[in-house]
Design a protein around this nucleic acid. Structure first.
Lengths: 173, 173
DNA sequence: TTCATTTCTTTACAATTGTTATCGTCCAGG
DNA sequence: CCTGGACGATAACAATTGTAAAGAAATGAA
């Protein structure tokens, strides 16, 4: 973690979870933020019974339904483990308190939000600009670890296509 | 404008521009923020010579390449007028100064960024979830003024499809 | 008004993707 | 060791979208 975060170390609790564990369910209000020590999480939304993965997170990532965590609104997505994980968790209460006590933490949190904003915008542009095939090639180039580590059908929905279509794209050479 | 903005009124300059005027070019560093008094702007990105509209803005909207305005990095997109416009403009200099002098303004600006983040996320989910046809129907329901006011081929690229395809969708009933 | 430009529609064809279903492989739990 | 479930590949067919081109309609400026 970064400097400002070190000061909260004592507020974190270690949690181990097996694969496919739901840490936050779509529609619920987020009360916890997760720091991934080991393993891999995904966020996903429900679309008429079909799961659409919106993002993957790996070691050293901070994960929360930011909107829900910040505004106490129901989360737009679920958070789930893809592998057995070792997590460090902090409650919203403790985090809010820390925000007020450590201005640098507040600054870093705003910066984090800003980076997330840029990332989400960049991915959005990729959608507007590129075909599914190109999006896959882009992912292969920029985040090969996702493709090596995550089952293919999750990646398909992340790319906005069906598993069948992704399988075709991969074998189209 | 909102309360905190009232205090900056004297820093704004009135600017009239005809339709199709470029206010900021992709790749340039943003030095100005615009407030739309009358008219309509769009942001767009270049994709191999093809223009892709990423957003529309109407009366009472604040428009800037937020990333560029905030970080002095080259803008990822261009800003252009779609109609003759009356704009109120403020320089980055003046705005940064004001940010430091008015804490409420800073707070409001962060809130504005957060809203933009939510909006961009929501639109992104709409892409992952819905077909072009559904996205059009959603736009028709949530922002009918866009469809009434903006030429169709801009809307097509905003929806991520070709003008031909949008024309087909519209006449598919 | 007139003329040029922009905008939208339509057509024909190609390419891509979705849908549904089947089948083989792999792996973990019993 | 066995077996059920998860996962990925493939096939056949339908539906959608892209591309290119032509022409009609609307718009705006002289």
């Amino acid at each position: 973690m970064t400097s400002a975060w070190d000061k909260l170390n004592h507020l974190f609790k270690r949690q181990e979870v097996p694969a496919k564990t739901t840490l936050l369910q779509e529609g619920q209000i987020s009360g916890t933020m997760f720091f991934i020590e080991k393993g891999c999480l995904r966020t996903w939304v429900n679309n008429d019974g079909k799961e659409i993965t919106t993002q993957f997170f790996f070691e050293n990532a901070k994960v929360a339904s930011i909107e829900s965590f910040r505004t106490n609104q129901p989360s737009l997505y679920s958070i789930e483990s893809l592998e057995p994980c070792i997590l460090q968790t902090i409650s919203q209460q403790d985090f809010q308190n820390a925000l007020e006590n450590f201005p640098e933490l507040k600054k870093e949190t705003e910066a984090h939000l800003f980076r997330r904003f840029l990332y989400s915008q960049k991915r959005f542009y990729s959608y507007l600009k590129n075909s599914p095939q190109k999006r896959y090639e882009e992912l292969l180039e920029e985040h090969p670890q996702i493709i090596q580590r995550v089952p293919q059908h999750y990646i398909a929905s992340y790319l906005g296509i069906t598993p069948v279509s992704l399988s075709r794209i991969r074998n189209r050479r």
